[in-house]
Write a protein that binds this DNA or RNA. Structure first.
Lengths: 113, 113
DNA sequence: CTAGAATGCTCCGGGTCCGTAACGATCCTT
DNA sequence: AAGGATCGTTACGGACCCGGAGCATTCTAG
């Protein structure tokens, strides 16, 4: 991965956020974004407890994030059949498209010096 | 600026957001982040109306963002002496430090392949 | 000097999110 | 089979934010 000097790093951060704000879709919070990308980048399984520990956040925060992003169709809940106390967070087609589009925007904004 | 392939772009986005979530300071929303970086990256003057137009957002959104970030000490309001209807958004020392630290995190996360 | 335009703020009902605490369901140990 | 531990959710009161509409202040044009 390439290095980013201060000015370019900030410009990238600004440009991508501006793009997200300008379109009409609801913005994800930092917590929601982190949950979403964790699920799509790291290997399953993803549980509420595990996500809460990773983000250094309480469990209700994860529950609420899953509620909201589930409503948006970006993520799915499924009971773990092995241990029915657990909830497994799963990817969705819509979520995969969202993440892919996000990567495109980041890459594009990083590309234009 | 360097190019970022899909995987690296997403990992960067994830890692920086994770870092922001894990510390105890309150997270900025996408709108707040965009306002803050606009003020710190682009040339003054910055008005409520101008920021609202740029972000494609209503004026109360900017007013509220300035309230919150003013409370956090990241930004300052000042009446325009030339035209007292205008509010000029100004940088602060604390805001500059915040932005600088953000740039460090982005650069660091981008650097570690 | 007055009518209109422009600017940013406030108010409103409604929604989301916060952290803490309690809760039901499920599993595990004995 | 019973008691305790673990998991995710819900309840709660409080804070913030939303978009739309209306407002006071200030400037500008006639």
């Amino acid at each position: 991965m390439a290095t980013l000097d201060t000015a370019h790093a900030l410009k990238l951060w600004h440009d991508v956020h501006l793009e997200m704000v300008r379109d009409d879709e609801p913005d994800l919070s930092a917590r929601q974004m982190t949950v979403l990308l964790t699920v799509y980048l790291e290997a399953p399984p993803h549980t509420v407890r595990g996500l809460a520990a990773k983000l250094n956040v309480t469990k209700p925060v994860i529950t609420r994030a899953l509620d909201t992003m589930g409503r948006l169709g970006l993520l799915n809940r499924k009971r773990d059949p092995e241990d029915r106390r657990n909830v497994l967070v799963q990817r969705t087609v819509r979520g995969a498209l969202f993440v892919e589009k996000l990567a495109d925007v980041i890459g594009q904004k990083a590309g234009q010096v």
